[in-house]
Amino acid sequence: MNPIQEYFYRIKEPERSTLLFLRQKILESDKENITEPLSFGLPFFKYKKKMLCYLYYSKKHKKHYVSFYHGDRIEHPELIQEGRKKFKILLIEMEKDLPVELILSLIQEVKTYIK
């Protein structure tokens, strides 16, 4: 098992399936340019080898989230900065429908800031 598979394997169900589905959608959104190396021990999505976003768990909020690089430039009511300089996070409500379209549109917006 590679390190990325191990990361997801450690997450309990049903969160694991939700995050794996989201991972698949992010990777499929731009197969040629989005890669998924393990950075800082996390599955980190990169666009043309530049930081894009990553998945993690907030102990404070007790929820998984997607953290967007250049989030400081994005204005959206559901994004939380909480003192981060370059990132904003979107908490994932596991009990609700996954906001795939919102996440993919935020990724598209982040891509516009990557040179």
Rank of each mutant, 00 (worst) to 15 (best):
E36I: 05
N2Q: 07
L42G: 01
S58I: 00
Q108V: 13
F21P: 00
F21M: 10
F68M: 04
P43R: 00
K12M: 06
K49R: 13
Y65H: 13
K49N: 12
Y69L: 15
E36K: 07
I4L: 08
Q108C: 10
Y65L: 15
Y56F: 15
V100Q: 05
V66Y: 01
K59N: 15
Y54T: 09
K111Q: 12
Y9Q: 14
L90I: 01
R10G: 05
P99V: 02
K48T: 03
L42R: 04
L79A: 10
L38S: 08
G83K: 06
S67P: 01
E95K: 13
I114M: 12
L79K: 02
G41D: 08
L106Q: 00
E82P: 03
K85N: 10
Y9N: 15
E109Q: 15
H61V: 08
Y56L: 11
K63T: 05
H61T: 09
K25W: 04
S67T: 06
H70T: 08
D97F: 10
I26S: 05
F8A: 10
L42E: 00
R10M: 12
E32C: 07
G41P: 01
R23Q: 13
Y113C: 03
M94K: 11
E93I: 07
Y47E: 05
L98P: 01
K59Q: 15
Y65R: 10
V110N: 01
E13N: 09
L52D: 01
N2Y: 05
G71R: 03
Y47R: 12
Y54K: 10
Y57F: 13
L90E: 04
T112E: 15
Y57W: 12
L42H: 04
K12S: 12
K111R: 13
M51W: 11
N2C: 04
R84V: 11
R23D: 10
H64A: 09
K88R: 09
Y47N: 03
S105H: 10
R23W: 05
Y65E: 06
P37I: 09
L104I: 13
L91K: 13
S58D: 02
K50G: 02
S105K: 15
D72E: 14
E101H: 14
I26W: 03
L38P: 02
I4N: 09
M1A: 12
K115F: 14
M1V: 07
I80Q: 11
G71D: 02
E75K: 12
E109G: 10
K49P: 00
C53H: 06
Y9F: 14
G71A: 10
I4S: 06
R84E: 08
L20M: 10
K48H: 06
F44S: 11
Y113I: 10
S17F: 02
K62G: 02
I92N: 00
I103E: 00
P14M: 07
P14W: 08
Q24P: 02
K85G: 06
E6A: 12
K96C: 03
P77L: 11
N2A: 04
L91N: 11
S105Y: 07
E93H: 09
P99N: 09
Q5N: 12
E93D: 14
Y69M: 12
D97A: 14
K88W: 01
E93R: 12
S39K: 13
G83E: 05
E109L: 15
P37M: 07
L42F: 08
E15L: 08
G71W: 03
E93T: 08
H64C: 04
P43M: 07
P14L: 08
T18H: 14
K111M: 11
M51P: 11
L27G: 00
F68S: 03
K31H: 07
L20W: 01
